[in-house]
Design a protein around this nucleic acid. Structure first.
Lengths: 143, 143
DNA sequence: TTACAATATGAGAGTAATTCTCAAATTTGA
DNA sequence: TCAAATTTGAGAATTACTCTCATATTGTAA
């Protein structure tokens, strides 16, 4: 089974560029397509195809929000670093946090060695409440 | 803003019962509807409506698999126990594992104490490769 | 260059999972 | 038993892809 050769196209480049240029925001596939179309030609199928590949290879991450219909994608930062740390997502404010923590890493190793499960830090996101929101809640604010 | 009054119906009960009776398996909304229909009357819309509510209230959990089209639901176990352990999901075979691990718990505490982030074990799922699939891959099998 | 095979694109059809709509049925309290 | 509030269900609508396949583009070898 040979590796497929990959051709370089301007559509691929556009999508890659788009994500690299908007690392901190989240977009639906439709928004991505619309944004790119302002600069250059691209079809929706192609956008979906590329998004799918990028998601599989870990360059971008998919979030499915509360309902299935609000799916959103975000750049995963080139993931040189992302294999090395873990990701937290605050369920209150939506903040996405990169956590570089030795204890977590050692848990990953432990999990692999003792439970046989290899955690994929690219695909795993911890959900919970961030420090800012924790503080707010304690302070008596609500909603 | 008053709380809405909630009426008790046999459809609601059926869905609740269905999940309580199949705590360890995952079902698509369609399968849930089909299974319940064998016993009593229920419409698909109603199943979806109830699933949605149960998901929001945390009684069941939604997994979206590789693509949006393979969404699956599972009882969250009344979540008495589920606050105490973590969940792993194998990206190869789909196996859902409950992991009761002290090291993981201490990581949760550490995360809260040192990073201010309170992990919600109910919403967090670790993605990775389970021991069985790890063994297979090493054994040379592919696809 | 040029020719060509491999690969990528895009328009539109197809699919699956919800969500919406609204009239009819059910549940509850009085 | 009545009436108001809520729930149900059939089918249409929506959304987020996925597939198909004819056409276009890319890399390479002559």
């Amino acid at each position: 089974m040979q590796e497929k050769i990959s051709y370089h196209t301007k559509q691929k480049q556009s999508v890659l560029d788009f994500f690299a240029n908007h690392p901190h925001r989240q977009f639906s596939a439709k928004e991505i397509a619309e944004n790119i179309k302002e600069q250059s030609e691209i079809g929706e199928s192609t956008v979906y195809r590329l998004i799918k590949k990028l998601t599989e290879s870990g360059e971008i991450r998919r979030f499915s929000g509360k309902n299935v219909k609000s799916v959103v994608y975000q750049y995963a930062g080139g993931h040189e670093h992302c294999h090395e740390h873990f990701h937290l997502k605050c369920t209150e404010c939506g903040e996405f946090i990169h956590l570089d923590c030795k204890l977590m890493k050692s848990f990953g190793e432990h999990c692999s060695a003792h439970h046989g499960f290899t955690i994929d830090p690219l695909k795993t996101v911890f959900y919970g409440v961030c420090s800012a929101c924790n503080a707010e809640t304690k302070g008596g604010k609500h909603l």
